[in-house]
Write a protein that binds this DNA or RNA. Structure first.
Lengths: 347, 347
DNA sequence: TCAGCTTGTTAATTTTTATTAGCAATAATT
DNA sequence: AATTATTGCTAATAAAAATTAACAAGCTGA
C-alpha cells in the first residue's frame, strides 16, 4: 500500500530538462561534468537551479538500496590534511555513521576538479547514501556541479549559492567569548595578533575580538592590533613589537595556537611570567597547546561535532531543507590567560 | 588510451540472472523489493547469492559498454589519525594512484573487526583494484581474513604470517644514523630517552642507538639510558634526571619529538644553550620540530614514500611476490644537535 | 473434471540515462 | 565576403533497469 503511495512520480532528467528549457542530454552533461562537452555557465546555472527546485536526485539516492549491502557515505576533502582538523571531523562523522551500520569512504582530491568529478560520478553509480564535501580551510566555495546529484552537506565551508546545507565553526563568537574571558579575569589592555589577512578565519576572529571589547565598553586601540601570519615566527615578531610599544598590553590574544608558541618565546625572553605578569590566549586547541608551559588557554574548534552533524543530517532522510550552521566551540580554560589583575592597575 | 584497456566487463542484471538461473526481470524485482510482485524465498536467496558472487552493483542506467569506470584502491586505517603520519601516507598513496587515474578511498575502522570485514566485503563487491591496510602504530598485526580476497599490502605494519607485502620505517637504522650524526659532530657522552617500552618503535630506536655506539667503539653506559613516555612531560623528567646525575651527557637523543619539547624546557630552565652547550636530537620530524628554538634536528619518517610504494606495488600487476620493506628516512639536520665540539675535549 | 484463483516467473515493453555525432550560430581568419 | 574554427547545444541512439502484462503450474471447491 505504501508502495503505491511512494510512486510519487519520479523526477527524471527529462523533467529537469523541461524546467530548465534545455534537452535531457544537456542535463546529463552538466551533472556528469564531462570535460569535452561545452556548456555555458549560464545554462549550467539554469540546470542546477532546476535540479534543486525539482529535487532531482539521480535514482533514489539517499534511500536505502532496496537490496542488502552496507550503505555508504562519501566524504570528500579538497586538500590533504596536514593539521589534525580533518582527522577529527572524519572521526566524528565516521563514528556517528557506523552507529547506523553506514560505512564512510574518504577521498582526498587535492582540489582537482577532474578528480572530484570522477569520484562524485563513481559514487553516483554506487548509489551512495550521501556526500559530505569538506574544505581544510574554512571558506566559501562553489561546489562541483556533480555534487548536485547527491544528497550533500558541506563541512567546514559554505556554499556561495546557498543550495547545499553547511556547517562551519562560529569563529566570530568563539573569538568574542575568548576575549570576554580575558576581560573577565581583569585584563583591560588586550592585544590581538592577526593571522594571514586573506583568510576568513583571521578576519572573523578579529571581528569577534573587537565586538567583545565594544560590549565591555573598552575602546579598541589600533596600536594593540598587530599583523601576524598564523606561524610561530609571526607570533614572535608581533609580540616583540607589542612589548616595545609605548603602552604594552597586559594580555595577548593570538589568532591561532602556532603564533602563541612564538608569543611564549618572546615573552619568556623578556622575563615575563605567562599567566602571571601577562595573559595569553590562543585559538584552535592544537595538541601543542597542552604541552606549552604554562598550558595554553585556547578556543576549541568543534570539528568532531561538525562531523557528527554531517552524518546525522545525511542519514536523516526526512530532513531535506538546506540550512547553514555556525557551531560554537568551548574555551579551553587553562593557565596562560590569567595575569595581572585590573584592581592593581587601577589602584 | 589506458581507458580503452581497462574495459572492466561490467556485471549487469542479465549476468546475475544467468548465474541464478532466472530472468533479468526477476533480479530487478528482488533487488528493488517491489511489494506486489511475489518472489519465492528460495529464488530470492539464489538471486542474492549470485549478486554477491558476481559482485553486482546497480549502476546508473544506460551506460554503454564504454564503461570508463575508474579503478579504485582501498586504504584502510585501523585507528583514526591524530598524528599527521596518516595524512602524509594517504597523500603519497593518493598522488601516485591518481597519476594513473586511480581513485583512493580511505576508511577508518577504529580497529573494529566487524567494520573492517564489512568494508573489505563491500570493496570486493566493488571490484577494487587493491587494498592497503595501514596501522597508525608501527607494529606486527594479523590482518583480517577478508583481506585475503584482495591484492593487498600492509602500510606501517608487518604481517605475522608473512603472506602479505609490507612496508615500515627502518627505525633501527634511523636511530643508528641519528646517533652517528651526534657522534660525528663530536659528542661522546650521548644519552637516550626511551619511549613507552611496550612500543616496537621505542625498542628498535634504542637498539639503533646502541648499535651506533658499538660501531663507534663507545661504551654503552646504562646510566645514560632513561625511560620516557613519548610525551613532553616524560622528556622533561628524564632530562632533569640526566642533568642531575654524576656524569651528565653532552648530547641527548630523544626517542620522539614530543619528548624533545620537554627536554628543551628542562635544558633552558638550567641555563643550557641548546646546540651550543648541549646537543639534542629528536625523532619523527613532527611539525613542531621546525618551530622549536633552536630548530630541532630529527629523523624524518618516510611516510610519503611509504604511501607511494603502496600505490606502485598495488598498481604493478606484474609484481605479485610478497616482500617486506624497511624504508629509511633522512636525518633532518638543523641546529639542535650541535654542541661542545670534540676537538676541544680531545685537545 | 474443470472454472477460478493464487503463486512465481518471464517475455516484452517502457523508462531512464549516457554518449556519439553533428548542427546552427557566432567568432576568427584569410 | 568567403572560409574555417569554435562554442553551445540537441537529436538520435545505445544500453541498463523498471514495469507491465501475460502465462504456466498448482490448488480449491462444486
Amino acid at each position: 500500500m505504501t508502495s503505491k503511495d511512494d510512486k510519487t512520480i519520479r523526477v527524471t532528467m527529462k523533467d529537469v530538462a523541461r524546467a530548465a528549457g534545455v534537452s535531457q542530454s544537456t542535463v546529463s552533461f552538466v551533472l556528469s561534468g564531462t570535460e569535452n562537452m561545452r556548456i555555458s555557465a549560464e545554462t549550467r546555472a539554469r540546470v542546477l537551479e532546476a535540479v534543486e527546485a525539482l529535487g532531482y536526485r539521480s535514482r533514489a539516492a539517499g534511500r536505502p538500496t532496496g537490496g542488502q549491502g552496507h550503505r555508504v557515505i562519501g566524504l570528500m576533502f579538497d586538500e590533504i590534511a596536514t593539521s589534525p582538523f580533518a582527522s577529527i571531523s572524519i572521526e566524528g562523522l565516521q563514528e556517528e555513521a557506523w552507529k547506523q551500520g553506514v560505512i564512510v569512504e574518504v577521498v582526498m582530491t587535492g582540489g582537482n576538479r577532474a578528480h572530484e568529478t570522477a569520484v562524485l560520478n563513481k559514487w553516483a553509480a554506487d548509489r551512495v547514501h550521501g556526500v559530505a564535501y569538506a574544505s581544510i580551510l574554512t571558506r566559501e566555495i562553489t561546489p562541483p556541479d556533480a555534487l548536485a546529484r547527491h544528497k550533500a552537506v558541506l563541512l567546514n565551508c559554505t556554499d556561495s549559492t546557498g543550495r547545499v546545507s553547511s556547517i562551519v565553526p562560529a569563529e566570530r563568537r568563539g573569538a568574542e567569548l575568548a576575549t570576554r574571558t580575558l576581560i573577565e579575569v581583569g585584563h583591560r589592555r588586550i592585544a590581538f595578533i592577526t593571522g594571514e589577512p586573506w583568510m576568513d578565519a583571521s578576519v572573523q576572529r578579529q571581528e569577534g575580538y573587537k565586538r567583545a571589547l565594544s560590549v565591555a565598553q573598552i575602546e579598541v586601540d589600533p596600536a594593540l592590533i598587530v599583523e601576524g601570519n598564523f606561524l610561530p615566527s609571526g607570533g614572535h615578531a608581533a609580540t616583540v613589537a607589542l612589548l616595545e610599544s609605548a603602552q604594552p598590553p597586559n594580555a595577548i590574544f593570538c589568532a591561532n595556537d602556532l603564533m602563541a608558541i612564538g608569543c611564549y618565546e618572546a615573552l619568556k625572553e623578556r622575563g615575563h611570567r605567562i599567566g602571571e605578569t601577562i595573559g595569553v590566549m590562543g585559538y584552535d586547541d592544537q595538541e601543542v597547546a597542552q604541552h606549552l608551559s604554562p598550558r595554553l588557554s585556547t578556543v576549541l574548534l568543534p570539528h568532531r561535532e561538525m562531523g557528527q552533524w554531517c552524518a546525522r543530517k545525511l542519514l536523516d532522510s526526512s530532513d531535506m531543507n538546506p540550512e547553514a550552521i555556525r557551531l560554537e566551540g568551548p574555551i579551553m580554560i587553562r593557565q596562560s590567560h590569567l595575569g595581572v589583575c585590573a584592581p592593581e592597575t587601577t589602584a
